[in-house]
Amino acid sequence: MTSIDVRDLTKHFGSRRAVDGLTFQLRPGRVTGFLGPNGAGKSTTMRLVLGLDRPTSGTATIGGRLYAELRDPLRRVGSLLDAGAAHGARRARDHLRAIAVSNRIPAGRVETVLGETGLTEVADRRVRTYSLGMRQRLGIAAALLGDPEVVLLDEPANGLDPEGIVWIRTLLRRLADDGRTVLVSSHLMNETSVFADHLLILGRGRLLADTPVREFIDTRVRPEIRIRTTDDTALADLLALHGHDASRAEDGTWNVRHAELEGIGRLLFEARIPVKELAAREATLEQAYLDLTAAEAEFTTHPQEV
C-alpha cells in the first residue's frame, strides 16, 4: 500500500506563496477530500506531488520516492488535473492508447476503463464532440488506466450531470475500499462531505485542518434543535426557565442551541406544549468550514495578497 508524504512543501510564484509549508500524509484505504477556496493551492499541491511544478522547498514523496523516480508512474499514480488535456481532434480511444503504451500498460486496460467510465459507445468519436462531463469521464479513465494504488483527482465532479455525480461517489468509495489512496479536491463542501472520509483544508497555501470529516463537523458545529409551536409564549417561558439559549426566527421557528433532542422532547411533553415540529438540525460541513475560516480570519492581520 502506498501513502503520500508531503513535508514542508512550499511553492512561490514570484512573491506569491501558492503553497506555504504544507506537511501531511495521505493514507491508503480512504478518500481524502481536499478543500479550500479557488486559489488556495490545491491544484498546485497536486502538481508538486506529480513533479509538474518544482517546489521552492520541501518534498512530496509517493511510497517514499519522488514521482520522477517512479518507473512507469501511471501504474502507481493516476491523476486528473485538467479535463481539457485531451486533444480535440483525436479519438478518445487513441488518446488512451497513446497513454497506455507510454507506460507499458496492457492494451486491454483501455477497453476496461472506457467501460468503467461509460465511454465505450463514444470511444471512436473525436474528443471535441464531447461535453464537459464526457471529457471529465475521459480524464478519469486516463487516471484509472494504470490500475494505480494512488489516485489524485482535481475537481472531478466538474461538469458531471447528477447521474455522473452519483457515479463518481460510488467510484471513489470503491477505489478507497480496494485499499487505494484517494485524494479528491473540490470547492463544493456538501458534495465532499458525502464521499470523503478525511479532510485536508487549505487556505492561502497553508494547511488549516487535517482531520476526519465527522470529527471536523462535530467539533466545529454546535448542535441545534428546531421547534415550532402554536403557543410561543409558553415555549419561551419554558426554555427561559430551564436556561436554554434559544431564539425565535421571523417565521416562528425556534432555534435552541446546545440542546439534545431527547431532553427537549421530554420538557415539551411534560409542559404540555403543543408541538408542530421538533427536529435536530443536521450539522453540515459547510457550517464547520465557515466556522474554521472565520476563526482563521481573526488571527490573520495581514491583508490578503493579490
Binding site: 506529480l50 509538474l52 508512474p73 488535473l81 485538467d82 479535463a83 488535456a85 485531451a86 507510454s102 486516463a142
Partner: peptide
Amino acid sequence: GALGLAFAA
C-alpha cells in the same frame, strides 16, 4: 493541461 498529462506519464 496536455503537457502536464504528458509529463505525468
